[in-house]
């Protein structure tokens, strides 16, 4: 009980700290360029949170995510550009359409298993990409959509300045993180993890595996769609490239750098990777050479990513400190416990 309270306190402090820094960032950022980079990083991070739910928690390697990102961006872009709908209508529409498409895709793809699932979702990603590129009349083909309107102002708040757009994106990012952490710590999130660990066992225990997979897939797509819509409203120019599977691979890289199946991982990974990319502009060409190799090294040696490595380090230190404590004041409660455990083994 006490432990739980400690944990939730630490969690609150972490969230508070992040929010404080994020809110202060436009004031302390030395130049506006950083602000644009971080805003874009936040948008990507929202999509990476979606991927984290599927790959990290549910354990299903879906490679359709850039397709969903592009879908969200194009739905929102087209609605506001062609039908002149308000951003506040086109954004939820983008999320809903993306979710519906994903549910349909999930209904078919989750009947396949293992490698078939990966290849299937990859093909869905390619199909979305190709349709966006070839459906010239609607999407403008390779020319893309130009001049997408800014997010519509709400009463006195407009989204013209860079800062205001930053805060808008930050709002959605915080919402995403909140929802994801609520899910992760609940029975629903544990159910996803149990499916990742053993689908057969989960089903034997009465868990409806298909329904849970669809649920996770739908939520992931929902946020990916939102990220796409935010991208369209922020960059205001979109081309078929944003639905290319290469973007999925980048999301995957961000996720793996940060740490899959952790709450901080997607944000940490995305910010570090996009930050590195920007600060190493001179070696832009070599970027994917480095990232490609990095991807292999991470999955081989650090499958938990940065956050996973940090957590491992923390438990190690705690263990060591516990040991030190114990040897000082001999038979403490912890010692008793440990002794019993040893007896059992």
């Amino acid at each position: 009980m006490l432990d739980g309270m400690k944990k939730s306190n630490a969690k609150l402090i972490a969230y508070g700290g992040f929010l404080a820094v994020a809110i202060a960032f436009p004031f302390i950022s030395p130049n506006r360029y950083y602000l644009t980079v971080v805003t874009l990083g936040f948008i990507y991070a929202i999509a990476v949170y979606g991927l984290n739910l599927i790959v990290g928690y549910l354990g299903q390697l879906s490679l359709a995510q850039a397709g969903f990102f592009g879908l969200g961006a194009y739905v929102s872009g087209l609605l506001s550009l062609k039908l002149h709908l308000s951003f506040w209508i086109s954004l939820p529409m983008a999320a809903v359409v993306t979710t519906l498409v994903a549910l349909l895709v999930g209904l078919i793809s989750f009947r396949t298993r293992g490698h078939y699932f990966v290849i299937f979702t990859l093909c869905i990603g390619v199909i979305i990409n190709l349709v966006i590129e070839k459906w010239d009349d609607l999407t403008g083909g390779v020319r893309g959509l130009i001049g997408i309107p800014r997010p519509t102002s709400i009463g006195p708040i407009d989204f013209i300045s860079l800062e205001s757009q930053y805060y808008l994106v930050l709002f959605f990012l915080s919402l995403t993180i909140f929802v994801m952490s609520q899910i992760a710590s609940s029975l629903v999130g544990r159910t996803f993890k149990s499916i990742r660990n053993s689908e057969e066992l989960a089903a034997t225990l009465g868990i409806n595996v298909m329904r849970n997979k669809l649920l996770a897939f739908g939520i992931a797509a929902f946020f990916t769609g939102i990220a796409g819509a935010l991208f369209a409203g922020y960059i205001r120019f979109i081309g078929p490239d944003i639905s290319n599977p290469h973007l999925t691979f980048e999301f995957l890289l961000f996720l793996l750098i940060g740490g899959q199946a952790t709450i901080a991982g997607p944000l940490v990974g995305t910010l570090i990777a996009t930050g590195l990319t920007e600060s190493l502009q001179f070696m832009q060409e070599y970027r994917m050479v480095v990232f490609g190799a990095l991807l292999i090294i991470i999955v081989k040696f650090f499958p938990g990513g940065l956050v996973g490595a940090a957590m491992k380090l923390k438990t190690k230190i705690e263990k060591r400190m516990n040991k030190a404590n114990k040897s000082v004041n001999a038979p403490s409660k912890g010692e008793n416990h440990a002794a019993k455990n040893r007896g059992f083994n």
Binding site: G59, L61, E285, Y286, G292, A293, P303
Partner: peptide, 22 residues
């Protein structure tokens, strides 16, 4: 390694080769 990690490693090799060619 788990099969999805193998797949990711293969993706890494692919990105590496393509970028190196560029």
């Amino acid at each position: 390694s788990p099969s999805s990690n193998k797949f990711i490693a293969a993706v890494g090799a692919m990105l590496f080769l393509e970028a190196s060619a560029r």
